[in-house]
């Protein structure tokens, strides 16, 4: 006699679990797909029937968003700020973390806690004084100011993460290199930094997305006369909802959203394993 696996109970559970899983997947993706589809519609189609498909693929919406609604400019501004801030964060973060992890000196623990303690404070607390610090340095509404501020606020987590990482690297390699006459500088740039690559990639992805998606800092630091030319994508996009609403150019708004969304989603799909581990790294302590 053939024994039957207890399919009954688990079959039901299985159908049940799949329904919920599919349901949430639809709920997650549908708004994104809807925005993408709407970016090809004209204003009349958008306003009259939310769920209809566009009569044709209107790429001119994308062109209009890129040029007339300035999304192109905001995109390039963001690219400049994010690449500058990312390079600076990784360099300064790795330098501080390396020294704090592998050298003992007076106050080294204190300095470590001063850096890491920054993770506990909400950015909100700093907003008012930060505005004036940046203003007094003449860096308000400049890309350099934004790069320096992004970097400074990324240091606590970067130092925390990389210090832990540098501590795990074997010290035999370092000792051997020192015996061979390698300088402290050579040891860092030629041996330790390459060995720390996995850690640098994780925290780099974490910072890349954090900087690209930053919203509160730019809206505080990039305002006033003529600041629009320097805006980043997130603030340009939110301004667009208000302006395009008045102008009635909804198709450019959806196209702008699609332009802002796609690069991040594509980057994520290509590097999804690294992105997921990079972003969850902050939570698994």
């Amino acid at each position: 006699m053939r024994r039957r696996a207890p399919r009954g109970r688990f079959g039901v559970v299985n159908a049940f679990s799949h329904t919920f899983l599919v349901g949430w997947a639809v709920l997650t993706t549908f708004p994104l797909v809807w925005a993408l589809v709407s970016s090809f519609k004209d204003d009349r189609e958008i306003l009259t029937s939310a769920w209809s498909l566009p009569a044709k693929l209107r790429f001119d919406n994308w062109v209009r968003a890129w040029t007339e609604a300035n999304i192109g400019r905001y995109f390039l501004n963001t690219a400049v700020v994010v690449s500058g801030a990312l390079v600076l964060t990784m360099l300064l973060g790795a330098m501080a973390a390396y020294v704090l992890a592998r050298y003992t000196f007076k106050f080294s623990r204190t300095i470590y806690f001063v850096f890491v303690g920054g993770m506990m404070f909400p950015v909100f607390l700093a907003l008012v004084p930060l505005f004036f610090v940046v203003k007094n340095l003449g860096l308000l509404s400049t890309h350099l100011g934004l790069i320096l501020v992004y970097t400074a606020y990324s240091l606590p987590f970067t130092v925390f993460f990389l210090t832990a990482f540098f501590r795990t690297l074997p010290s035999e390699v370092a000792e051997a290199a020192m015996v061979d006459g390698c300088s402290h500088w050579g040891l860092f740039f030629r041996i330790m930094l390459p060995m720390a690559r996995p850690g640098l990639i994780s925290v780099g992805i974490f910072n890349l997305l954090g900087h690209w998606n930053q919203y509160v800092l730019p809206i505080v630091l990039m305002q006033g006369q003529g600041a629009e030319r320097k805006w980043v994508l997130t603030q340009g996009l939110t301004a667009l909802t208000i302006n395009q609403g008045y102008a009635g150019d909804y198709s450019a708004l959806f196209a702008g959203m699609a332009i802002a969304m796609l690069p991040v989603l594509i980057l994520y799909l290509v590097f999804q394993r690294q992105v997921q581990s990079g972003l969850t790294a902050g939570h698994l302590k």
Binding site: L21, W24, A25, T28, T29, P31, L32, A35, S38, L209, W212, N213, Q214, Y215, L233, T234, Q235, L237, T238, L240, T241, L253, F254, M257, A260, M261, V264, L265, L267, Y268, L269, Q272, V275, Q276, L279
Partner: peptide, 22 residues
């Protein structure tokens, strides 16, 4: 599912806000 569920996490709060407003 793990890939799809993670989508909102990589998007900026600005995009999410504008999208849901619409």
């Amino acid at each position: 599912y793990r890939i799809v569920y993670f989508f909102p996490q990589v998007l900026s709060v600005a995009i999410i806000g504008v999208l849901w407003k619409e």
